[in-house]
């Protein structure tokens, strides 16, 4: 026995054309929205990375004050390019032993996401090159011999005297951003006297 399908039911189904049109509209809207999503993601990664580096600096300062010893903040360049790839950060304690001072890692190296990096330009991140004592090449497991640079906190919570107001900051940005000053940046400044960090964003 063959029952004809009810009219109402047949009408309520979507036709292929309708479906295609809806899919096309969704695709168009997504195409418009996707780039801004991307910038939101980079922006939030930038915030995340900046907070991580700021926290590491505060941790280093606190470590220096509580342990009454020099503590270094080292930044690592994970790429062969001298200016790109500054994405690693690690805190080092300088312990005084019978045989002299020995640098001991106070925690593992933390990496910021690949779409964010520290701009190594001297105008944007003079803190990277401010303290000539903390720069060189280190053998990091998994990365081989890589360049590092950084600065240090003294036991009183201040930075080394080589850090002045003019060279006390570094800037994070989108790794793909062009131009001398990126549209979105995250600048962290260390007060050379108190070791307090201040954040600047556009």
């Amino acid at each position: 026995m063959k029952t004809p399908l009810p009219r109402l039911a047949r009408r309520s189904a979507f036709s292929l054309i309708e479906l295609l049109m809806v899919i096309a509209i969704i695709a168009t809207v997504t195409a418009f929205v996707a780039p801004s999503f991307n910038s939101i993601i980079v922006g939030s990664d930038l915030t995340c990375a900046g907070q991580m580096i700021g926290d590491q600096m505060m941790y280093a300062r606190q470590e220096a004050v509580t342990k009454n010893q020099e503590v270094q903040v080292r930044f690592y360049n994970l790429s062969n390019d001298a200016t790109k790839g500054w994405r690693g950060v690690q805190v080092w304690r300088i312990e005084q032993t019978k045989t002299g001072s020995v640098a001991m890692a106070a925690g593992r190296m933390l990496l910021i996401r690949e779409n964010v990096m520290i701009n190594a330009d001297a105008g944007l991140s003079p803190l990277l090159t401010a303290d000539p004592h903390i720069s060189g090449t280190a053998n990091v497991p998994g990365h081989g011999a890589i360049a590092y640079a950084g600065f240090r906190f003294r036991a009183n919570g201040a930075t080394d005297n080589s850090i002045t107001e003019a060279n006390s900051f570094l800037t994070l940005q989108n790794a793909k951003a062009q131009g001398p000053v990126p549209a979105n940046y995250y600048t962290i400044q260390v007060n050379p006297v108190t070791g307090k960090t201040t954040i600047f964003r556009p």
Binding site: G123, S168, T171, T187, N191, P202
Partner: peptide, 9 residues
């Protein structure tokens, strides 16, 4: 603030 980084508005 006398120590403002030069690229900050």
């Amino acid at each position: 603030n006398t120590a403002l980084p030069p690229h900050v508005e």
